[in-house]
Write a protein that binds this DNA or RNA. Structure first.
Length: 232
DNA sequence: AATAACGTCAACCGCCATGTT
DNA sequence: TAACATGGCGGTTGACGTTAT
């Protein structure tokens, strides 16, 4: 038995992606989508494993990816969320439109970690929520809960509901909820959050306007609000 | 100018969760 | 229900650029 390797190692390229490979991958996904990552490289004519293609797309090629330095607000938010969520980078990334878990992880290790006092640095360790229930039992409990309903999550990817997005801009409208984020938040939480925001926005979640939801401040408020709730 | 030390970040690896047969 | 396939996540690594000596 045993698990099959993610890809047969023979003949597949590794390492940095070339612009040509990027182009091929983008073209293929733009025309065919990415229903099956494993089959994708073969269909696209890439000598990469599906996992590598997925990673490249998710972390670099997606049009909604926001590049460039993190703002002070973003950094603060990451620090605060890390305090609550631990190393659940995908959940943290879900609150930062256009930022990837990988990028956040890198920023954390290269910049933000240094700012923290020693005791907080050692607070979260190893496979935060998944394996170490002792670390943050609340999070583990949350995993048992059904997915929240309000921001109707799409199951795959970091599901940003996005209007036409262009890279290097902040114009995309993101409702960056994925499974990771979803599982850490429950219905009561969302109903509170949404009721407070729906009082201002006549639209239901997700809103048509980008004015609030793609703003870091919004997610910061969400986070701060969440601290008042029992699960946090 | 050379090179060692350090910092950053893209990418890989292995594990786990979930879906499918 | 078991076995397998696939996607997703977090930890880690290695290449590359920058700074210090």
């Amino acid at each position: 038995m045993g698990r099959a390797p993610c890809c047969e190692k023979m003949g597949l390229k590794k390492g940095t992606w070339t612009p040509e490979e990027d182009q091929i991958l983008m073209d293929h996904i733009n025309t065919h989508g990415h229903k099956n990552w494993r089959a994708l490289p073969k269909l696209a004519g890439l000598l990469r494993c599906g996992k590598s293609c997925r990673l490249r797309w998710m972390n670099y090629l997606r049009p909604e990816i926001k590049r460039g330095n993190f703002t002070k607000e973003e950094e603060e938010l990451i620090i605060q969320l890390h305090e609550t969520l631990g190393n659940r980078w995908s959940a943290i990334a879900a609150t930062l439109p256009g930022r990837t878990d990988n990028e956040i992880k890198n920023v954390w290790h290269t910049h933000l970690k240094k700012r923290l006092p020693q005791d907080t640095k050692t607070k979260h360790k190893k496979r935060s929520a998944k394996q170490n229930s002792s670390l943050n039992p609340q999070i583990t409990e949350e995993k048992e809960k059904p997915l929240l309903s309000p921001p109707h999550c799409v199951s795959s990817d970091v599901s940003t509901l996005t209007t036409t997005a262009t890279s290097d801009t902040n114009d995309a409208i993101h409702v960056p909820i994925n499974r990771g984020a979803a599982e850490s938040l429950d219905d009561d939480f969302w109903s509170q959050v949404l009721s407070s925001y729906n009082s201002d926005e006549t639209t239901s979640f997700p809103p048509n306007s980008s004015s609030v939801y793609h703003n870091v401040d919004f997610w910061y408020d969400v986070y701060m609000g969440a601290q008042d709730l029992p699960y946090f």
